[in-house]
Amino acid sequence: MMAEYPLFFAVLIPVCILFGFVTAGSMLIWAERRLLGLWQLRYGPNRVGPFGLLQVVADTLKMFFKEDWIPPFADKSVFVIAPAIIMTTVLLSFMIVPVSPDFVVFDSSVGLLVFLSLSSLGAYSVVLGGWASNNKYSLLGGLRAAAQMLGYEVFMGISLMGVVAMTGSFRLQDIVEAQRGMWNIGPQFIGFIIFYIAALAETHRSPFDLPEAESELVAGFHSEYSGLKFGMFFVGEYLGVTLMSSMMTLLFFGGWLGPVLPPVVWFFIKTTILISSFVLMRATLPRPRYDQLIVYGWRVLLPLALLNLLVTGGIVLMFQ
């Protein structure tokens, strides 16, 4: 079918991916609050619509109509651009995510590398946002984001190279197909754990929410943001979580592979479970100090990631 109507699908797929993931990202506003409620012995939002599902609509409307205020002391252009960066880079990343064998916007032979480079750019958003706000708390938040990036970026890419070595390709479809026999979570368990930690840090999710650290920096880098600009940081974070969970599904949990149900459904189920695990982390863990995160990254996770790559490479060579 796709061959018959190439133009139609060329439009349909990006639209579906864009709307699908943006909706999923914003639904997380509701899902996270309900899940946290469940784990914290309370209800969470349950008033707007069935199960509080329309809370997302209410929140979005509110954000649209809030005063979009730029502080007079801020660096205006950078202040406006910063939240757009995270939205752009995360949304662009989704183009290489195959939700089923054919359903992908940009079938790249180096999909994984595209993902890694785009997701690293996201850190600029936080650093610039914190700097442009010209507020001391925001500045500290931005500084922490920069420091934090130095902590996790080093081992993030390396943690995935085991998967690449096993597959022999950077193309995400190939990586998924290679997991027909066994999901990568088995042989690449250490790689998965390291990448998971990096993903938490990359998306600035608790316990690595140091740049906003509510009890310390009030709201950190986005203290001065309101209205839709705040909304972009907010949804950008949830989109990041969705992106990271999708990537983990593809890289370690066999992507769309699964019996009976259609591929898209399998992809959706696996991603949702991983997203919930992000929320569970937030409900459970306290926050380390930023220097502890960096030390942990360089002294523990980086050597571990390198060791994992070394061993994987050795085994791959042995069986060639």
């Binding site: 946290l36 914290q40 012995l41 608790s206 929410d209 009890s215 937030r282 409900a283 863990l285 306290p286």
Partner: peptide, 16 residues
């Protein structure tokens, strides 16, 4: 105290 360290759930259990 736990909340100050960044753990968000304990305070809710303890208030219960």
């Amino acid at each position: 105290f736990a909340q100050d360290i960044g753990a968000m759930s304990p305070v809710l259990y303890m208030f219960t």
